[in-house]
Design a protein around this nucleic acid. Structure first.
Length: 585
RNA sequence: CGGGGUGUAGCUUAGCCUGGUAGAGCGCCUGGUUUGGGACCAGGAGGUCGCAGGUUCGAAUCCUGUCGCCCCGACCA
């Protein structure tokens, strides 16, 4: 039990100007955190308590799923990362952790870095400690601070430079085992989010820089999220934007339109899809072919889409390039023969076809019959273009960004879209890390195999903020019971009054017996201030003890989300409070 | 890193265009009156106007540079 007057909850009437979104403002106004610098936050007592509660629940669910807790260093020798597969992409977000030195030495390679994640630490560890199939499978986890020098920290704890994460790693002897471990973790995640009172959706996700064979993200739906979720509740399909597919194009669809004769025509100054749609041309966007030239590991390649579709760059990952970027006009013209705006892939029109590392076409272009595309000659397009007859294509694939309302790939029902905050991510890694350092075990036939790994993360501090984003109103936070910093707030309106103080103490004790963490607002403030603060910090159950109620012989119980309060007779109040709390806890 | 914005008291900000005494609200301190949804009255403390240089008799204000922070984009738990 804590007394507000002796505790530390610095609430703010106004929010600092640098807080943009509701959850960020509330974090600060409710006295949960204070900023030290960009992406760096102090957890004040209230915020710290919530972090502890989220961590504890996370720990319990991970252990229930069979994972074993350990703790790895935050400072890593730089050699651990140097020359690794992720050194390039990861390097720029890593903090170096060398001695600050005397300021005279010039730049040099870092000796130590602050750990952004721990695959690189745990894989060598397990390599040397586990050598037999008898010791598999094993899953480990830790809950601790991670350091990433984010290019742009944002939205308070949402994207911070230093943040708290639960990270887990699984080691299995074979693929079936690895899938079991993966599913166990997925189950633990689902249980975790359910217990903390948060709706989190798991969606198919891209593996990105992490690599691996498949993965799911756990998303908390929120308008301020930085990823789009495409889903249909009936069919159960859910994927993020990078991964989302649709059943727009029937399998094996061939050219259908009556084939017209190819015809080049002048289009002076026309370099956009929209301009070709307008009079006098009037070619609808879905009747155009859009040709994009990208650079993959330094080699140009082309991507062909319908004019009405957008490229989803993440989907180019399947092409096997390490680094992909749009090509510059200077890189494009010598290869294609024209500047962007007049590009196309009609056979025979590409100036230097052998230079291209490939022409990759989205399946959806099959829907275009007698279409129009660039002639690879500035100021000219070609009409009556048909895919099978006319287009140069190395390979078809799924490269377009899905749109809301398209049929989902499982049941053909319309896809819905929501914004979401990524709070967890699980990866089936396969052997990507174990192979690099030859980490494996010996089986019962004395044969050596690589560990099949998985890795898993939950952003604990991000989850804290995502919960607020999902659960608040105009007055403040509405904490789910399980992670509220205190579950019960005894609001003592007349701390000078001995009788009221005594009643408040008894009720606080009763709530404590029921299993709640109790905060007593014993400050010498006016009732209005106390009520506003109570709503702001979002304690689920408020018990009001005041002179007015005592005269009537009642105290009031009010749930944070509810409109009305309940009056309870004084002589039954202790038993009632204890019972109510026990039921929740 | 590219684009945009912004720095004035603990917080929110006015003043800047058109140079001349730095102002308000909230919060804080003292006294009084109040006391069930952010009270009122009186008094008070608190500001190197982000930093450095320049122009000027004179700079919060104009110019140059620099740093911090915020927003949009790429990246991530």
């Amino acid at each position: 039990m804590k007394f507000w007057s002796r505790y530390f909850i610095p609430t703010l009437k106004e929010s600092p100007s640098d807080a943009e979104i509701a959850s960020h403002r509330l974090l600060i106004r409710a006295g949960l955190v204070r900023k030290l610098g960009g992406g760096l936050y102090t957890y004040l007592p209230l915020g710290h308590r919530v972090m502890q509660k989220i961590s504890r629940i996370c720990r319990e669910e991970m252990e229930r799923a069979g994972a074993i807790e350990l703790s790895m260093p935050h400072i890593h020798p730089a050699e651990l990362w140097a020359d690794g597969p992720r050194w390039g992409p990861v390097r720029e977000i890593m903090f170096r952790a060398d001695s600050a030195g005397d300021g005279k030495r010039g730049p040099r390679e870092p000796e130590f870095v602050l750990g952004p994640t721990h695959e690189e630490v745990i894989t060598p560890l397990i390599k040397s400690e586990i050598t037999s199939y008898r010791d598999l499978p094993k899953s480990f986890f830790q809950i601790g601070t991670k350091f990433r020098n984010e290019i742009r920290p944002r939205y308070g704890l949402m994207r911070a430079r230093e943040f708290v994460m639960m990270d887990a790693y699984s080691f299995d002897a074979d693929d079936e085992g690895a899938v079991r471990s993966y599913l166990a973790m997925k189950g633990a995640y689902e249980a975790f989010f359910k217990r903390i009172g948060t709706q989190a959706i798991s969606v198919e996700a891209d593996t990105g820089v992490m690599g691996g064979s498949f993965s799911h993200e756990f998303m908390v739906p929120a308008d301020v999220g930085d990823n789009d979720l495409y889903y249909n509740e009936e069919s159960g399909y859910a994927a993020n934007r990078e991964k989302a597919r649709s059943a727009l194009v029937p399998e094996g669809l061939a050219d259908t339109a009556p084939l017209g004769a190819l015809e080049e025509f002048p289009t002076p100054g026309i370099v956009t899809i929209a301009a070709l749609e307008a009079p006098p041309y009037g070619v609808p966007a879905d009747g155009q072919f859009k040709t994009l030239v990208m650079m993959g590991d330094g080699r140009p390649f082309a991507v062909v889409l319908r004019g009405c579709d957008e490229l989803e760059e993440a989907k180019l990952g399947s092409l096997g390039f390490n680094l992909v970027r749009p090509a510059t006009p200077e890189e494009i013209e010598p290869v294609m023969g024209a500047k962007p705006g007049s590009l196309g892939t009609v056979r025979g029109t590409i100036r230097d076809l052998p230079k291209l590392a490939g022409i990759f076409a989205d399946h959806a272009i099959r829907l275009v019959g007698n279409g129009t595309t660039g002639a690879n000659r500035d100021g000219f397009h070609i009409r009556n273009v048909n895919v099978a007859r006319d287009l140069e294509v190395t390979k078809f694939g799924d490269f377009r960004r899905v749109k809301a309302g398209e049929p989902d790939p499982l049941g053909g029902r319309p896809l819905m879209v929501k914004r979401g905050i990524e709070v967890g991510h699980i990866f089936k890694l396969g052997t990507k890390y174990s192979e690099r350092i030859d980490a494996g075990y010996t089986d019962d036939k004395k044969e050596r195999h690589l560990f099949i790994m998985g890795c898993y993360g939950i952003g604990i501090s991000r989850t804290l903020q995502a919960v607020i984003e999902q659960s608040h109103d105009a007055d403040g936070i509405i904490w789910p019971w399980a992670i509220a910093p205190f579950q019960v707030l005894v609001c003592l309106l007349d701390p000078q009054d001995t009788e009221a103080t005594l009643i408040a103490a008894r009720l606080a004790a009763a709530a404590g017996r029921g299993g709640a963490d109790v905060l007593v607002d014993d400050r010498a403030e006016r009732p209005g201030v106390k009520f506003k603060d109570a709503d702001l910090i979002g304690i689920p159950l408020r018990i009001t003890v005041g002179g007015r109620g005592i005269k009537e012989g009642v105290v009031e119980l009010k749930w944070r989300g509810a409109k009305e309060s309940l009056k309870i007779a004084l002589n039954e109040s202790e038993a009632t409070v204890e019972a109510v709390v026990r039921e929740k806890a």
